[in-house]
Simulated scan of single mutants.
Amino acid sequence: MTKKPALILALALAVVLTPTLTSCANPVEQLVEGAVEQAGGGDVDLNSDGGLPDGFPSDEVPLADGEIVGGMGAGSVDSGGGWTVIVRVGDDREAAFTAIDEQLKAAGFEASYSGFVEGVGSGAYSDSAYSVIVSVADDGTGANTATYIVGGTSS
């Protein structure tokens, strides 16, 4: 498997597993981090305990107000890596998505897509340095979360 598909698989795995790993965080985090690093995905930081992944550009990419459930960072933006962050938002998904959309646009991001359909908000944004894909939905447990996938802007 080449590095880029391994990295994409790792980020997708983090999105799926992070909410379910909070009770057994450290051993599973180490297992996933080690597997991705061995696959050539570079440095990996899996946080299922509520912290931001290492290197997340919080000064440039604003996040919704709410509890950070977890996230993952893999590689560097220069090598095709990026971050996934999950934030618990309020009870009104549409209002949360509208606030996120406005927040990203105010930070200088341009939306190539942004909408709220059938209870799910999603959008794709970019600026000169970063691309952001965000979705706001029920996480399957009744809690509403915003999931951010952040990478470098392709040239």
Rank of each mutant, 00 (worst) to 15 (best):
G119D: 14
V16E: 10
L21W: 03
E67Q: 12
T20I: 04
G34T: 09
T84S: 11
A111E: 11
P57E: 06
I86C: 07
P5S: 11
S122E: 14
G70Y: 03
Q30E: 02
A6R: 03
A74Y: 09
G108H: 02
S122L: 15
V87K: 07
N47A: 08
W83H: 13
L104D: 00
T145G: 08
A96K: 05
A96Y: 04
E37C: 08
N47V: 01
A99G: 00
N26Y: 06
V77Y: 07
G108I: 00
G55K: 02
D65G: 13
Y148E: 02
S79R: 06
G123H: 09
S126I: 01
A107M: 02
N144T: 08
L7K: 10
G34A: 13
N144I: 07
V77D: 07
P27I: 10
D139W: 06
F56Y: 10
Q38T: 09
V44D: 00
G123T: 07
N47P: 00
T20R: 03
G75E: 09
A99Q: 08
V28Q: 02
L13Y: 01
T141L: 14
S135W: 03
Q103S: 12
G108V: 03
C24D: 13
S155F: 11
G140Q: 03
A14P: 01
T20V: 08
A107V: 03
A124D: 09
D45Q: 10
N144G: 06
S79D: 15
A25K: 04
G123V: 08
G42M: 07
G42P: 06
G51Y: 00
G66M: 02
D43Q: 14
G90S: 14
S128D: 15
V77I: 14
G71T: 02
G34I: 02
D127R: 09
S128K: 14
L13A: 13
L63Y: 11
L9R: 09
D65A: 15
G50W: 04
Y113P: 00
D78T: 14
V117F: 11
L9W: 09
L52N: 11
A25C: 07
D45G: 10
